[in-house]
Design a binder for these strands. Structure first.
Length: 195
DNA sequence: TGCCCGATTAACT
DNA sequence: GTTAATCGGGCAA
């Protein structure tokens, strides 16, 4: 049985936690799969919601690590983040894609598509498949209905520029599982490490 | 108060 | 490749 991720897992730099999440398993209400793509956001990073200080929307990012920060994107979609580092550093990891493994029937129904590769390939799609909304903003990640399990064994992690941003777009803070069919977009084969 | 724009997606051509 | 959908946050006035 894989080891559950606890609060302490998130009490590190967002740049350590983000690649470490590749290969971990995320379930919400018993539905989800393996994390194959994430992005890191830090308060010193112009692309981060926390960059310009605390507001009502991003308040959870300024709180303790190990909690979910969920925000509305383009007025349409929800996006899920994991808050990292010591309290107040205002950093988080955006969950961008999963390899769906548990609850495929529910995910297909919620998403309205049959193709496994399109169930969780993108941050908005992940939230739709897992039925995560603003109601989950501020919820603890180490307690139900969230379940997180550490990966078992080594994985090859790719790194590259983040998607859909204009500020600090050159920073290589997007991480993904090498060769996964479930990425929201392929990596251009630049940086890779075995962890 | 008004205006611009975004950590997106799906449906176009 | 391009664009509409859709709306709250953040900032200027």
């Amino acid at each position: 049985m894989p080891k559950r991720l606890t609060r302490s897992f998130f009490c590190r730099s967002v740049h350590e936690v983000a690649p470490d999440l590749i290969g971990a398993t995320l379930l919400f209400d018993g539905v989800g799969g393996g994390i194959v793509e994430v992005e890191a956001y830090h308060h010193t990073d112009a692309a981060a919601h926390s960059f310009r200080g605390r507001t009502a929307r991003n308040a959870v990012m300024f709180g303790p690590p190990g909690y979910a920060y969920v925000y509305r994107s383009y007025g349409i979609h929800w996006c899920l983040n994991f808050v990292c580092e010591p309290k107040g550093s205002a950093s988080a990891v955006l969950i961008r894609a999963l390899e769906p493994t548990v609850g495929l029937r529910a995910m297909r129904r919620r998403r309205g598509v049959a193709d496994e590769r399109l169930l969780c390939a993108g941050p908005g799609r992940v939230c739709e498949a897992l039925r995560i909304t603003g109601a989950q903003n501020g919820m603890a990640l180490d307690a139900p209905p969230f379940e997180l399990f550490a990966r078992t064994g080594l994985v090859e992690v790719m790194a590259g520029p983040r998607i859909g941003i204009t500020k600090a777009a050159e920073k290589p803070w997007r991480y993904g599982l090498k060769g996964s069919r479930f990425l929201s977009k392929p990596f251009s084969s630049a940086v890779m490490s075995l962890i």
